[in-house]
Design a protein around this nucleic acid. Structure first.
Lengths: 223, 223
DNA sequence: TTATAAATCACCCAAATGGAGTATTTATTG
DNA sequence: CAATAAATACTCCATTTGGGTGATTTATAA
């Protein structure tokens, strides 16, 4: 009965040197885990992720929210776009509704405060791999509150993607089922420019196909 | 002042031998027209259309509704799908609401009874090329009536595409922005089957891209 | 029983798409 | 003035689509 379950690959993204080191050291003691990737910024995390071997790709990411450059929520947004199956725990000292709500929106699986004991963090990681969503109790309370009056939040969310006027114009054409070339003729732009706009639209809307963009745009009447 | 305007290319689709011949002969006398394509069925019409040179492609089609095999309304539906700029006059001896309504729906530009004098037919053709929609008076009356209580008709139209259960299932996946391959995995089918279904969906929905299909499906909540 | 519709799988090919870069110009705003 | 956002244009490349054709199986209706 050596290792029944495979080790869980864990990554840490944390800019605070002392906290990062301490967390790394502590996690080494847990044989169920395999610390494969440690970064001090979202940017370096993505770089390292690209270069990592298959067997080193993290299953779980402990993501600090307050990061220099790209913050943890943006990073999670990007990460879930490309690696939807990766579980991400947001780590923060703050517990404001905005951050909690946004984190959930962008696809975080868990949300822990930084004062969570290391044992609980490890349990959280294991819980997640079994389909759970570990959340610090104080955070959970906030989440429940938000759930109760989700209406306002939902309304706030109706002002979603900050599409520029040019992008909206092109998105409308996409919704009409036009090809890039056809759109280019309508708006008097080069097809390449149209393509660039569409790529930017995809990034902002968090999709990667016309069909998905149309669906989202109609759902949140951007039309 | 020879030929100010270019000749209008005209096609005839009519299975009744005598009527077709007579119409062809009469049209020859009109120098504004250029009879380039005469067929006795929708099928042969499409065949000939494919093989016709650029300068022979009809601008206007005189389409009989009562045809053996594919009827004139279906043929118009198909034709407008591929040649939206082509003007089609429906020709028939009947004047029932169903046929009139369907003809308009599939994109016919004009609707004439077969007893229309040849001069009027020629005028109808010229009218159409100037943006008009020639309609026999008795037909026009019916159309106006339909306009007045369009509500019922519109409701009837809300049950539009007879998609099969399998097709609906796949359309839902398309709406979710999935690729054919991804859909194939979800529904346990080969990607080729998925593709076949999607092609059939397009035909039924009268579209030719995922974006357009999604838009239509959402507009008429097929979801 | 013979059409007919539905569902399934397959191949070919041209066109369109999505993704990742690079680069210039023009506002706008701190 | 420098930094930033927006708009514009272009290249390369792999993947996906859309369209055409053809074929088999099953079920249902004429």
């Amino acid at each position: 009965m050596e290792s029944e379950a495979p080790k869980i690959n864990v990554a840490i993204v944390e800019d605070h040197d002392i906290f990062r080191k301490r967390l790394s050291e502590l996690l080494y003691f847990y044989k169920e885990l395999n610390l494969t990737l440690v970064a001090d910024s979202a940017e370096s995390f993505f770089e390292k992720l690209e270069r990592s071997q298959d067997e080193e790709v993290p299953d779980v990411v402990l993501m600090d929210i307050e990061l220099p450059g790209m913050n943890g929520i943006e990073a999670t947004f990007e990460l879930k776009r490309n690696e939807p199956e990766m579980d991400i725990i947001m780590f923060t000292v703050f517990e404001d509704d905005e951050r909690i709500f946004d984190s959930i929106q962008v696809g975080a699986t868990g949300y822990l405060l930084k004062d969570t004991p290391i044992d609980d963090v490890v349990n959280a990681i294991k819980d997640m791999k079994e389909g759970g969503s570990p959340i610090s109790p104080s955070i959970a309370r906030r989440v429940f509150d938000m759930m109760r009056n989700q209406k306002e939040k939902a309304d706030t969310d109706e002002v979603p993607f900050n599409l520029t006027p040019a992008e909206i114009k092109i998105l409308e054409q996409v919704i009409d089922g036009k090809t890039n070339k056809e759109i280019a003729e309508v708006v008097f732009l080069s097809p390449w420019t149209v393509k660039t706009h569409i790529k930017n639209i995809y990034k902002k809307m968090h999709v990667n196909s016309r069909a998905a963009a149309v669906r989202l745009a109609l759902k949140r009447n951007i039309v």
